[in-house]
Design a protein around this nucleic acid. Structure first.
Length: 510
RNA sequence: GGGGCGGUAGCCAAGUGGCUAAGGCAACGGAUUGCAAAUCCGUCACGCGAGGGUUCGACUCCCUCUCGCCCCUCCA
């Protein structure tokens, strides 16, 4: 089956073919570790995970690499040579406040003034969140999840190479800059070509502080700065690398090729980050492309609005899972959300459109997860657990599912193919189970392989006892008591199902 | 001002130059139930942001407008 992806580089949907047939090499821009990652970040990471799983579904071997930005970049890079507050220092400041407020557990970070400890804390938190949500690459740390601070040497080597090849220079201020004029293809990805940047910026680009650069759009590769909180020796003085170089460098190094297949990120990274990555990599390798496909996920809105801390609609993964999502009345629901539900919610709309994260959507996703899970249980019961492994695209449901995914990751179409099927009673449950297995290799929600901690069994026992009381009341036809008990169970976040064989209570998924 | 993406029912969300515009949620009617929940059956867009144009025929192609989002400072 032919796979098509929309390529930001060409602005069209193209047939995907790996450069080397042995393996698809893809690189995803990962998180910075100055704070907990939020659900918008994860929309992008799950999008990358979906690409990977889809390619694997179609039989490709995939080498997926993601970076973690742990170099303390500056909050204000307006002049492109580093200004403002160091993000690691800002994180340290927040960390101290958070320790006081209890948001960060006592003892989690011994010394907030040590940037490596802060980075480690948030890196661990990120990996935990990513694994909870089934992001495959997170299970491949540290092999395929690379930290920038551990590849400084390689970055310096690439910077030297760029200077040698005439793509970079040391400015009068001692900063190493990339010369955008040395790379004619600059702007091809974003449409922000040099002439457009000049005319379109409304004077912003050509403002002050450009004196050290040959062209206003030149960007920093290395900044000597002995006062920086994280710094490394270099031929250009002790300092730190520019933001863009880590990706160029680590992708090339870890994937082992000068031209990779796919590069992903959020839409905000198209310019300048990815534009600069292309300039750097092509400048160093001499190739005329870096990644064959550039794929970007649109932004996520929350309840129709931009996610922002001041609006109170800013959610980390933890916020959602632990029931801090606000409902329509603006109140935290207090109902914990199953990771599979959040995974599906962040996956279920097309990556090239804005996604609107809502409480209602979460409930909706919970219904889908429950339905698929129950479908699996029914199939397992019917087949005696036998799962036919030899299913292929000749199966109509799997074929429709695959065809949708192959069409630029049409996830809604793919769900549309399986959801009606999930209410049927397939003639051959073992085959159906095989199909569901393949489907779930991509979706990863029924079940989510990585489940987090299960509920305390104390609670389970209590609920079971309440169910028994409910059954007893119903047997006595004391319906007032029965309704009261049912309300009690529901209040604890359970759905109550009465049946001839006794009442069952199931934890709500969201 | 410049670059880019998107606007399909109450909500989420597919799709196509021409059979009845997927699917899910919600809603409504029915079966079931002590009542519910779950489940099952059924109903639910003469219309696809607005206005033009091309065409035998457009929601699907072109133009204009409008609204939303991203980038042009760090940001998934």
């Amino acid at each position: 089956m032919e796979i098509r992806f929309f390529n930001t580089l060409t602005g069209t949907s193209e047939v995907f073919q790996p450069v080397h047939s042995d393996c698809v090499r893809m690189y995803s821009c990962g998180p910075t570790v100055y704070d907990f990652a939020h659900i918008g970040n994860f929309r992008s990471f799950l999008f990358a995970d979906l690409i990977r799983r889809t390619l694997e579904f179609f039989g490709h071997r995939v080498h997926h690499v993601m970076n973690i930005t742990d170099v303390g970049h500056m909050t204000d890079d307006a002049s492109a040579d580093g200004g403002g507050e160091d993000k690691m220092q800002a994180a340290a400041r927040r960390m101290k406040e958070d320790k006081k407020s209890g948001r960060v557990p006592e003892g989690a970070v011994q010394n907030p003034d040590d940037p490596y400890q802060i980075a480690k804390y948030f890196t661990d938190a990120f990996l935990e969140d990513a694994r909870t949500l089934g992001v495959k690459v997170a299970f491949e740390y540290p092999d395929n999840v690379l930290q920038a601070t551990q590849h400084i040497d390689a970055m310096q080597a690439m910077i030297s190479q760029l200077i040698q090849r005439g793509h970079a220079y040391v400015g009068p201020d001692g900063v190493v800059y990339y010369s955008v004029e040395s790379f004619p293809a600059y702007g091809r990805l974003s449409g922000n070509t040099l002439d457009r940047l000049m005319t379109g910026a409304g004077g912003r680009v050509s403002e002050e502080n450009q004196a050290n650069k040959r062209h206003p759009a030149d960007f920093m590769l290395w900044k000597p700065d002995s006062s920086h909180i994280m710094k490394w020796d270099s031929p250009w003085g002790a300092g730190y690398p520019g933001w863009h170089i880590e990706c160029s460098c680590m992708a090339r190094k870890r994937l082992g090729r000068d031209v990779i297949d796919i590069h992903t990120g959020g839409e905000d990274l198209i310019f300048p980050h990815h534009e600069c990555e292309i300039a750097q990599t092509c400048g160093a390798t001499g190739e005329n492309s870096f990644a064959r496909f550039w794929m970007h996920a649109r932004f996520l809105l929350v309840e129709g609005e931009k996610m922002s801390k001041s609006r109170g609609n800013f959610y980390t993964v933890r916020d959602v899972l632990q029931g801090r999502v606000r409902d329509e009345k603006g109140q935290p629901t207090g109902v914990s959300v199953h990771p599979a539900v959040l995974r599906l919610e962040l996956l279920k709309s097309h990556y090239r459109g804005n996604m609107n994260f809502t409480h209602k959507g979460l409930i909706d996703s919970a219904g889908v997860v429950r339905r698929l899970t129950e479908f699996r249980a029914r199939l397992e019961a019917a087949s005696g657990g036998r799962c036919e492994a030899a299913v292929d695209l000749s199966h109509p449901v799997l074929n429709a599912f695959a065809a949708a995914l192959a069409d630029d990751l049409n996830i809604a179409g793919a769900l549309g193919a399986i959801l009606p099927w999930a209410t049927t009673t397939p003639a051959d449950p073992a085959v159906a189970l095989g199909v569901l297995e393949r489907v779930n290799d991509v979706l990863g929600v029924a079940p989510l392989a990585t489940s987090g901690g299960e509920q305390a069994s104390d609670e389970q026992a209590e609920i079971q006892q309440l169910c028994a009381q409910l059954d007893d009341a119903r047997r006595r036809k004391d319906f007032a008591a029965a309704d009261q008990i049912r309300g009690q169970i529901q209040k604890r976040g359970y759905d109550v199902k009465t049946s001839p064989t006794g009442t069952l209570a199931e934890k709500r998924l969201a």
